[in-house]
C-alpha cells in the first residue's frame, strides 16, 4: 500500500455514481457485495452501460438503483417488476434488471413476481434475501426462518418461510440460482448468465443483515453471518428446488433451473410480424 492509493481509481468506479458514495448501507451489509458482484458482471460482459436500466423497490437494497451509473428508477414498494415490465416491452433493446429485497419482491410485490415469471418477461431479477425488513428496523418478512427473533416476532417467528428458488421455478422462470453474499465469484458468474439469458431469470442472493437480524439471532457480527454462509452452504447444481429450503444448518446453493422458453417479448414480436403480413 502506497500513497498512490489516493490517485488511483477503483477499477469499478465507472460503474458507480461516485458522487453518491458512500452508500447508505451499514458496515458488513451484504447489499454492497451484491452491488459489487453486479458491476463486475457488467464489466466482464462488456455491456454498453447506456443500455442498462436498473429498477429497484423500497427497502435498504432499493437504494441500489441510485448507485449504479446507468439509467435507473427507484419505484414504490413492491412494484419494480411491474415497472421493469413496462420499460422492457416499450424498449426491447434495453437490459432491464430488477434488484430488490425479499419483502419488496415476495411480500408486497409477490403477485408481480409470479406473473412476470409466468409471462417470461425478458428481465433479470436479483433478490437480496436478508430474511428481514431492514429499512424499517427489523420486522419479520416472507423469508424469515421459523423461530427467528424479530421486532414483530418477539416470541419467535411462527410463519413458514418462502423457498424463493422453488417459487421462481414453479412460476416459470427460465433461469434460477441461489448464492450467498460470500459466493462472490459464483454470484457474479450467475448474474452474467442471467443477463445473457432470454426470458425471466432469477437470482436469490442470500445476504447478511448483521445489524438487525444477525445480532438478534445468535450471530453477533457480519463475519459470524458470513461464517454461517460458509458452513451451511452446500453447492448442489440442478438439484430439486423444492428441496432447497433454507434452514439454520443448510443453505443449498447453486443453479436450479436453466431452460429455454420463448420470452414474452419474442412472442409479441412474432405475433406482430404475423399481423403485418396479413395486413399486406
Amino acid at each position: 500500500m502506497t500513497e498512490k492509493s489516493l490517485e488511483l481509481k477503483h477499477p469499478y468506479e465507472r460503474f458507480l455514481r461516485k458522487e453518491r458514495m458512500p452508500h447508505i448501507w451499514c458496515e458488513g451489509c451484504g447489499n454492497g457485495i451484491i452491488l459489487n458482484c453486479f458491476v463486475r458482471a457488467l464489466d466482464e460482459l462488456n455491456i454498453d452501460l447506456n443500455n442498462v436500466v436498473v429498477v429497484s423497490g423500497i427497502g435498504c437494497i432499493g437504494r441500489i438503483s441510485g448507485y449504479t451509473n446507468t439509467d435507473s428508477f427507484h419505484t414504490t414498494h413492491g412494484r419494480p417488476i411491474a415497472f421493469a415490465t413496462g420499460v422492457k416491452l416499450a424498449k426491447p433493446k434495453l437490459k432491464v434488471v430488477v434488484i430488490s429485497g425479499d419483502g419488496d419482491l415476495f411480500a408486497i410485490g409477490g403477485n408481480h413476481f409470479i406473473h412476470a415469471a409466468r409471462r417470461n418477461v425478458d428481465i433479470t431479477v436479483i433478490c437480496a434475501n436478508n430474511f428481514i425488513y431492514g429499512m424499517t428496523g427489523g420486522q419479520y418478512g416472507p423469508t424469515t426462518p421459523l423461530e427467528a427473533w424479530t421486532t414483530t416476532t418477539p416470541y419467535g417467528n411462527i410463519e413458514h418461510a418462502f423457498n424463493l428458488v422453488h417459487l421462481a421455478a414453479a412460476s416459470g422462470a427460465v433461469y434460477v440460482s441461489r448464492w450467498t453474499a460470500l459466493h462472490v465469484r459464483r454470484l457474479k458468474e450467475s448474474i452474467k448468465k442471467a443477463l445473457q439469458k432470454e426470458g425471466f431469470s432469477f437470482i436469490e442472493a442470500v445476504s447478511q443483515c448483521p445489524e438487525i437480524y444477525g445480532r438478534y439471532n445468535k450471530m453477533k457480527t457480519a463475519i459470524s453471518m458470513m461464517k454461517w454462509f460458509k458452513e451451511a452452504s452446500e453447492v448442489r447444481n440442478f438439484s430439486d428446488p423444492a428441496k432447497a429450503e433454507i434452514s439454520p444448518d443448510k443453505i443449498i446453493v447453486g443453479e436450479f433451473v436453466d431452460i429455454e422458453k420463448p420470452s414474452y417479448g419474442r412472442l409479441l414480436r412474432e405475433m406482430k410480424a404475423k399481423l403485418k403480413t396479413k395486413q399486406k
Partner: peptide, 16 residues
C-alpha cells in the same frame, strides 16, 4: 490499494 476513507470496517477482506 486501500481507499481508507471508503472503508466501513467490516473486516471481510481481512477475514477471508
Amino acid at each position: 490499494h486501500i481507499l481508507k476513507d471508503q472503508c466501513k470496517g467490516c473486516d471481510f477482506c481481512i477475514e477471508f
